[in-house]
């Protein structure tokens, strides 16, 4: 499968006054086309920051982010805006629909930004409302919709610009369990039918369960990842960073990784005193 998102040694630090708050610490990530990837981790682990940087909503301090082979960190603000408009769809935790627009207009607005006519945009909006199974609610405003319905509109809006990637930040966090599950099934269905790549940040167990690839983050680092996507015999180790290492180095790498994992899960007394 083709890589569509690649990050290399990504660092990001927020500053509160003179106090640094590291958010990402050397993230190397490779997302393939058609994946239903989930970024998991506790609050503050860097999921949303990573998603924002990949989505060109935020800058990184160092490293590179390549989306469709273009380093988005080198783009100007306006280039990023145009890039997002044509390549990336966003789904936010708080839905973030434009409250003065109806559901249909929220979806059509993106198409109009792409230069499509009003009529064509509304046609596309109707299509996506059908896809997310709320066609009958198209004329309602966001405040007349339930949370689940709003999130369906948000997904339809994200898809309306025909993006290759959907970035969803905690899409089920504000929903009850059943509505959340329905939404996950909807996203999975769209992923399988349309081949759209989903990169979702979530700590919802249902979302993690649905993932074709799970990337765990802790303290701004990837601490674990696995994939359910069957790999061909020729590429079985293609994603493994140790694929070309000699046997001894491989063992050493795995031990180090295990130690780091344990430290993160259960900090040492020394680390606990520090924190």
């Amino acid at each position: 499968m083709t890589s569509i998102i690649k990050t290399h040694d990504l660092h990001k630090c927020y500053w509160v006054g003179t106090m640094p708050h590291p958010a990402l610490h050397g993230i190397n990530l490779d997302i393939k086309q058609g994946e239903f990837a989930v970024l998991a981790g506790r609050s503050g682990s860097g999921k949303s920051t990573l998603l924002n940087i990949i989505g060109a909503l935020e800058s990184a301090d160092s490293g590179s982010v390549e989306v469709f082979g273009q380093n988005i960190l080198e783009m100007t603000q306006d280039q990023r805006t145009r890039f997002r408009l044509h390549n990336i769809g966003f789904v936010f935790q708080a839905y973030n629909l434009i409250r003065v627009f109806s559901a249909r207009e929220n979806i059509a607005y993106v198409c109009q930004l792409q230069g499509k006519s009003k009529e064509e945009s509304l046609e596309i909006a109707n299509h996506w409302l059908r896809e997310v199974e709320i066609e009958h609610l198209g004329y309602r405003r966001p405040d007349q919709l339930s949370g689940g319905q709003q999130q369906r509109v948000a997904i339809a809006r994200a898809l309306a610009s025909d993006p290759k990637i959907i970035l969803a930040d905690e899409p089920t966090a504000n929903l009850d369990t059943q509505t959340g599950r329905n939404l996950i099934h909807l996203m999975q269905d769209l992923n399988q039918r349309l081949g759209t790549t989903f990169l979702i940040s979530s700590h919802d167990p249902d979302v993690k369960e649905a993932a074709s690839r799970l990337i765990k983050l802790a303290d701004g680092q990837i601490v674990d990842e696995w994939s359910t996507i069957p790999k061909t015999p020729t590429s079985i180790y293609s994603d493994c960073p140790v694929q070309n290492m000699p046997f001894g180095e491989r063992v050493q790498f795995m031990i180090k990784r295990l130690i780091r994992w344990r430290r993160i899960r259960k900090p040492s007394k020394k680390n606990r005193r520090r924190s």
């Binding site: 408009l85 973030n96 993106v110 809006r157």
Partner: peptide, 15 residues
Amino acid sequence: TREFGVFMAIGTTRQ
């Protein structure tokens, strides 16, 4: 502010 952030996120330019 949030709404403008969303406008920009979905492809509305600063101008």
